[in-house]
Design a binder for these strands. Structure first.
Lengths: 190, 190
DNA sequence: CGTACTTTTGAATCGCATCAAATCTGGTGG
DNA sequence: CCACCAGATTTGATGCGATTCAAAAGTACG
């Protein structure tokens, strides 16, 4: 990140569950989550929570850089430390700093890929398949150190927490996974 | 698009169902679909087709610009005309042409938003809700002129075609939608 | 210690997937 | 022009799996 931009950024702290921005707000800042985790979420009409992005040492809601309004809520999953870049300055820095710019493009490309992987995952109609797909795409090592509650993970997978618990239990019983506390490991078979 | 880049592009024609690239291929070109439609798709282990992107007058599989391999198959939905840009030249043009670059960034941002909208849609557990969500996010006018078969649309919605037919029929009977051939219109209620 | 929340399991229900089969449609070749 | 064929469209019947509602046990935190 270019120093010119960093100087214009404001350090911000948010408590757990605090709102960084809400749907409909005019985007004034691009947030970089330095410490902790923030998420992008929406609620369906019936109230089920949907998680669209989890940011940890990364930007949150990048797409809002050019939007007239936020399409989602941004909330802190825990107490966090964030850098807030005024969008105007951010755009200027993108125009001025080639290094920063190519980082930004890489970041966007990665985010597109991640979102598409999530689409593919949600297309799987089977709870167990979604879990395995998550492990395969998000954990190169095959080991997932869960940094959130299982209930929150269920929302990210597009499942109810009950369905997630049962599917985890089933996969564990079948010997496909080893579940030990917040560590979930794929065993090498089928 | 900068003229310098356009000169380096190659015009390509593909028949219906022809493959532009396949999963695992090393990306050599970035494709711009000039005429017709191409799609990015994957198959789940059980064989259900999943549509991740539909490109029409736009880039296909942008994310591959920096990948070592394609993550999806690219196929022509119909006979198409495309521009193929060698990835090396494409990256150089991004570095050299500010105008082109900002267009590219805008495009990526739009693609992130679209993918996230699709994630949100797939999170809806109800077939009718997915249809309505699609109309709301993809058709500002509330009118959808379907440019593909319903069966293909069903794959994009993450439904079986039977479920789509039934949900369409139900919404139509309830007076929420007006369905007339390939035109689907949201009526202002509910 | 008490409270709020997560985790876990159970039972009932509902909607979608699946399998099946009957039109309908567009396009091809005779 | 018509017969034919492949695929899309549509409807029906059945089963499965996720949701939903419910409740108990575990856990973190003040």
């Amino acid at each position: 990140m270019p120093s010119c931009l960093r100087e214009l950024a404001q350090w911000r702290r948010f408590d757990k569950d605090a709102s960084l921005f809400a749907i409909g707000d005019v985007p004034r800042y691009v947030y970089f989550i330095v410490n902790g985790e923030a998420r992008l979420r929406r609620h369906s009409r019936e109230g089920t929570e949907m998680v669209l992005q989890r940011a940890r040492n990364s930007f949150l809601a990048e797409a809002s850089l050019e939007s007239a309004a936020y399409h989602c809520d941004g909330v802190a999953s825990e107490a966090i430390l964030a850098l807030a870049f005024p969008v105007g300055d951010f755009r200027l820095a993108l125009a001025d700093c080639p290094n920063f710019r190519s980082k930004w493009i890489s970041h966007l490309l990665r985010e597109v890929r991640r979102a598409r992987a999530q689409v593919e995952r949600q297309g799987l109609r089977n709870a167990g398949d979604r879990i395995l797909h998550y492990l395969e795409t998000e954990c190169p090592s095959g080991q997932l150190q869960l940094s959130q509650t299982r209930k929150a993970w269920a929302a990210e997978l597009g499942l109810t927490h009950e369905a997630l618990y049962r599917a985890l239990g089933k996969l564990s019983r079948q010997g496909v996974l080893r579940v030990e506390g917040s560590l979930i490991e794929k065993l090498n078979r089928g």
